[in-house]
Computed example of a mutant assay.
Amino acid sequence: MLTENVIEVEKNIQDACDRAGRSREEVRLIAVSKTKPVSDIEEVLTTGILDYGENKVQELSDKYDVLPKNIRWHMIGHLQRNKVKYLIGKTVLIHSVDSLRLAEQIEHEAAKADTIMNVLIEVNVAGEESKFGTTCNEAIELVRAVAALKHVKIKGLMTIAPFTDNPEDNRIYFKKLKQLSVDIKSKNIDNVDMDELSMGMTGDYEVAIEEGATMVRVGTGIFGERNYQI
Results as ranks from 00 to 15, higher is better:
2 L>H: 07
3 T>E: 14
10 E>R: 15
10 E>H: 12
11 K>P: 04
13 I>Q: 06
15 D>G: 04
16 A>I: 05
17 C>Q: 07
17 C>D: 06
18 D>T: 13
21 G>L: 05
22 R>T: 05
25 E>I: 08
26 E>H: 06
26 E>N: 10
27 V>W: 10
29 L>T: 03
33 S>C: 07
36 K>F: 07
37 P>V: 07
39 S>V: 13
41 I>H: 05
42 E>S: 08
43 E>S: 11
44 V>G: 06
45 L>H: 02
46 T>A: 13
47 T>Q: 10
47 T>A: 09
48 G>E: 11
48 G>I: 09
50 L>D: 11
50 L>C: 07
51 D>V: 06
53 G>M: 08
57 V>L: 10
58 Q>M: 10
60 L>T: 10
65 D>P: 01
66 V>C: 12
70 N>L: 11
71 I>S: 10
72 R>W: 03
73 W>D: 04
73 W>G: 03
73 W>P: 06
75 M>P: 00
76 I>T: 05
79 L>Y: 00
81 R>L: 01
81 R>K: 15
83 K>N: 08
86 Y>Q: 13
89 G>K: 07
90 K>T: 04
91 T>A: 15
94 I>V: 15
96 S>T: 07
101 R>C: 04
103 A>I: 00
106 I>T: 02
107 E>W: 06
107 E>Y: 05
109 E>A: 06
109 E>M: 01
109 E>L: 03
109 E>P: 05
110 A>T: 02
114 D>L: 12
115 T>G: 09
118 N>K: 13
120 L>H: 02
122 E>Y: 03
124 N>V: 01
125 V>W: 03
125 V>T: 09
127 G>I: 03
128 E>D: 08
128 E>G: 01
133 G>P: 03
134 T>L: 03
134 T>F: 01
135 T>K: 01
139 A>C: 15
139 A>H: 00
140 I>Q: 13
142 L>A: 04
143 V>D: 00
144 R>T: 13
147 A>V: 04
148 A>M: 15
149 L>N: 00
151 H>K: 05
152 V>Y: 04
153 K>R: 15
154 I>E: 02
155 K>W: 05
155 K>I: 11
156 G>H: 05
158 M>L: 11
158 M>P: 06
159 T>Q: 04
160 I>P: 00
161 A>E: 07
162 P>L: 04
166 N>K: 14
166 N>W: 09
167 P>Y: 11
168 E>N: 15
170 N>I: 08
171 R>L: 11
174 F>Y: 12
177 L>E: 09
178 K>D: 03
180 L>V: 00
186 S>G: 04
187 K>C: 06
188 N>K: 14
193 D>W: 10
193 D>A: 12
197 L>M: 15
200 G>T: 11
200 G>A: 14
203 G>D: 13
204 D>P: 12
207 V>L: 12
210 E>L: 13
211 E>W: 01
211 E>H: 10
212 G>I: 11
213 A>K: 13
217 R>N: 11
221 G>I: 07
222 I>L: 10
222 I>K: 06
225 E>C: 07
227 N>M: 12
